[in-house]
């Protein structure tokens, strides 16, 4: 009952923020599932950092601070960064992790250089960079919620349309290629969807923590099921749960930033899932282990 009364007394801005965070959680959870299953959990981290120069260039070129233009710049830079990672891995002997680390840090460095350039011209202030790094969930407006809903919904619909192809790509890429599926195109499609989810999330949780929004709900969902369909659904739900609870918790006291709180909520969901999920969970594992020992002991005694 208490939670209900909290909900009723939620003021309008907080409700908008909570809805926005929930939508973001759903989208990043559902799309993050694919990244986690393909062992590309940290790709999100790289894309979100690589987006900074895109934002700076978009601002330098257009001189406007319209979110849509900046978001477009971020998406293009993030996308180019990912393509660079893929080509480094394909064409050289440098492994995935190093390629990711190089693109992540150096793109961010380029962004920083551009940012200091903009700062010197007196057009922007440091606040822009802080927002990029940590997000500013409190600034989510109705318009943003609409953008998140439309773009995020469209991304999820695309994964549903290409469900079979993506499933094959995730679980057996070589088999998919041998059947004649264009794996590289599918790879780029999936990455592009990921880029959309990340760019949408930058405003709420920021670049540093965006990777957690992709990874945590998916890892939690993985513990409860072995089926892709259910995993995507559960990851979306967990993401929404973390978004809403993080927003509400951070609103109860002053000076608790929303982004990090959402991430911690998602981490708690992971902790609970790893401990208590049926069959896979640690507690379950322990019980099974002990039951097996007892059964073996009884069998041994019976034999004597």
């Amino acid at each position: 009952m208490e939670s209900l009364s909290i909900l009723i007394h939620l003021d309008y801005t907080l409700m908008i923020v909570a809805i926005g965070a929930a939508l973001l959680g759903t989208v990043s959870g559902a799309l993050g599932t694919y990244a986690v299953l393909r062992r590309q959990s940290l790709l999100g981290d790289a894309i979100s950092h690589a987006a900074l120069p895109g934002i700076a260039i978009a601002f330098l070129l257009t001189g406007s601070k319209t979110p849509l233009i900046l978001v477009l710049g971020a998406a293009i830079a993030g996308w180019l960064g990912t393509l660079l990672i893929m080509s480094i891995v394909r064409l050289t002997r440098i492994k995935y992790d190093s390629a990711l680390a190089i693109v992540l840090s150096t793109f961010f460095g380029v962004g920083l250089v551009l940012h200091t350039l903009i700062q010197r011209t007196g057009n922007a202030n440091q606040a822009g960079l802080d927002t990029f790094l940590f997000g500013q969930a409190a600034t989510i407006l109705e318009r943003d919620v609409l953008t998140i809903g439309i773009l995020g919904g469209a991304s999820i619909i695309v994964t549903l349309v290409f469900w079979k192809e993506l499933k094959l790509l995730v679980f057996d890429e070589d088999f998919a290629a041998s059947l004649g599926f264009p794996t590289r195109t599918l790879d780029i499609l999936l990455t592009s969807l990921l880029v959309i989810a990340i760019v949408l999330g930058l405003q709420a949780v920021g670049a540093v923590l965006m990777s957690a929004m992709l990874v945590a709900p998916a890892v939690a969902a993985r513990q409860w099921t072995n089926r892709l369909r259910l995993m995507v659904f559960l990851a979306g739900c967990f993401g929404a749960l973390a978004g809403v609870s993080g927003t509400i918790i951070s609103s109860t006291a002053s000076r608790i930033p929303t982004g990090p709180t959402i991430v911690l909520c998602a981490t708690v969901v992971v902790g609970i899932s790893i401990a208590f999920a049926p069959n896979r969970g640690l507690v379950w594992h322990r019980i099974r282990h002990q039951r097996n020992r007892r059964d073996l002991k009884m069998a041994a005694e019976a034999q004597e």
Binding site: R39, S41, V208, L209, S211, A212, P257, G259
Partner: peptide
């Protein structure tokens, strides 16, 4: 625990610790 792959384990751990620091 064999429940989480290496990349996901990294992707879970550092944002959580970092969030604690920021808060």
């Amino acid at each position: 625990t064999k429940l989480v792959k290496e990349d996901a384990a990294i992707g879970l751990t550092f944002p959580a610790l970092f969030s604690i620091g920021v808060i």
